[in-house]
Design a protein around this nucleic acid. Structure first.
Lengths: 120, 120
DNA sequence: TCCTATGTTCGATGTTTATGAAACATCGAA
DNA sequence: TTCGATGTTTCATAAACATCGAACATAGGA
């Protein structure tokens, strides 16, 4: 599980990591600085694909994944990114918010926990 | 030759266009706001490949290509980008300058015009 | 009209990427 | 130790991408 140091981060790799709606959605989700549980993340893809996207973000240095026992927690490396590429993340986040990119990505808790009413 | 209006520009498409060293090099070259002749651009790729890269940038809305007679002139759409995605281009340019990304891309005039001395 | 310079487009090729299913590895609980 | 939950990795596939050379289109000039 690779986590590049700030000086190892490559600009075009970061931009490439952010050139996908699902990944931008994930970044937006983590933009509040809170660490999120892997299973808490909802995206309209298979879990192997979600794992792939999280790896692209992680490898580029955008996110950090922490393992605790059998589960993982993901967080945005906002500070590292701000130091390495000042202004970049903010610009992307504001643009993404403005266009509501990656809206299909969400948290289990945001809707399901409430909507998922006792059916049947 | 498509040139998207600012409102038609797509964030992830712009980021994708900027996720290649050669294209970043081209953008850096145009960052001074000057329009450059196509033939003036030097990149370590075949001209068909260069044409391809310029098209990716153009399609994303990063550059504008103007045709005049039999030749073309390329310019950075800095203002349009700044309005559509505030701060994004500057952040990318500063990061790219800091890492000297796309250094293989240059202008004919920068070296050749001087080096290209009367041989023989 | 014919030639030439300038880019674009097309066709082919090899690489990378996104995707999902299935197998796997790991850790905690029973 | 066996089971179950949680992600990762592997495998396969289809699409996208970077690259080049060759063919093409166009606009001036001879």
């Amino acid at each position: 599980m690779r986590h590049p140091n700030p000086e190892e981060m490559v600009l075009v790799e970061v931009l490439g990591a952010l050139s996908d709606p699902i990944r931008v959605g994930l970044v937006r989700l983590l933009a509040d600085g809170r660490e999120r549980g892997w299973g808490e993340l909802r995206a309209p893809v298979a879990k192997s694909t979600l794992s792939h996207h999280l790896r692209v973000l992680r490898d580029a240095g955008v996110t950090r994944t922490r393992q605790e026992g059998t589960r993982c927690f993901v967080a945005l490396r906002r500070n590292d990114l701000d130091v390495r590429f000042p202004g970049l993340l903010n610009a992307v986040l504001e643009a993404a918010d403005g266009d509501d990119i990656g809206a299909h990505v969400g948290l289990t808790s945001s809707i399901d926990a409430v909507t998922e009413a006792p059916e049947a």
